[in-house]
Design a binder for these strands. Sequence first.
DNA 1: GTCTATAAGAGGATAGAC
DNA 2: GTCTATCCTCTTATAGAC
Lengths: 197, 197
Amino acid sequence: MSRNDLNNHQEANSRRMELIRAAAKLFRDQGYERTTVRDLGNAVGLQSGSLFYHFRTKEEILVAVMALGITATTEQLALTLAAANDTRSKLAALFHVHLHSLLGDNQAALEVMLYEWRSVSDSAKPGLIVLRDRYEALWQGVLDEAAAEGLIKQDTHLLRRTLLGSLHWTVQWYRNNGELSVAQLAELMLALTLQTR
Amino acid sequence: MSRNDLNNHQEANSRRMELIRAAAKLFRDQGYERTTVRDLGNAVGLQSGSLFYHFRTKEEILVAVMALGITATTEQLALTLAAANDTRSKLAALFHVHLHSLLGDNQAALEVMLYEWRSVSDSAKPGLIVLRDRYEALWQGVLDEAAAEGLIKQDTHLLRRTLLGSLHWTVQWYRNNGELSVAQLAELMLALTLQTR
DNA sequence: GTCTATAAGAGGATAGAC
DNA sequence: GTCTATCCTCTTATAGAC
């Protein structure tokens, strides 16, 4: 039986997951359109035709990469928030989890979600939007809580959008060369937000 | 003679410029890789082969679009800054010019510069980076001036990057549907930055 | 300057053997 | 599950006529 069906459980299904992870890196580095199914096959030691046993189309791989990127980040954020004792810690969690997911050495998938959106077919968008909204709802909840406590004083909707924009953009300039760790960057960006609010 | 040479003057060279503007819209809407030379020809009423009288390669069109996007914005910012009387006005100019260029109905080119970077060949990157640095230097100058006057209190380098990230990201969510004008958005985002700094 | 025609290749995807 | 072989389409770019 083909493994093309949606699978919501942890799919450690090694072959399929291995492919998704390899695709995430290739899509991030070269872009989705410039990555061929032959590239994808090479990356996991398969002939290009064999990919289509695991995925019906190339686009299905893209969608799987994006879904992994956003759900893994959401799960990590939910866990970290659950462990936070106060609102200040929750705010910090927003920055730390997002930047670690985006800039950490094991992801790439979230970056694909951010920068390859145009290559997603209209039929696949709704499912991904649900996942994205779930993530942003976690953000919104913490920001609203912080506003209620007076930690921040702005329109939390606009603030959420500007903050996420700032964080997303880090992939364009941040280089992990030892000068500034991801954790340090998260603290700096948090301070920029909290300062005086 | 072919018009393939670099041209730094105002090139109202109608045909070539018409093509660049049409390409900007197509690249923004569909992405560079998904836009074919036939699409480009259609958009200006030419057969695909005829494009190659004006540009040597498809990529040359992409580079021209990007160069237009960043230089037009830089020129506009320089003009607006020159007309500003105080630092507060210059800060406002940063936000207004950037958002009008990015979200205004006549550009698209700047957005291509931000989101199609991966499709630029290594040989074409340096020239574009020079243009981008020129733009960011204008930003840096104003932010440093504002810091010197105490209007802002943060590390201006990090601030520049977070602000530009926030502004770039607006293309992902802003819709000009009458609720919020571009000018109003610029003021809101400026207020978010100045608040208490 | 633009057209028609086409070269030359790369792309995603399928079929059937193993 | 993966391979080999291949189909068929679409792509950028060129050549030469007008």
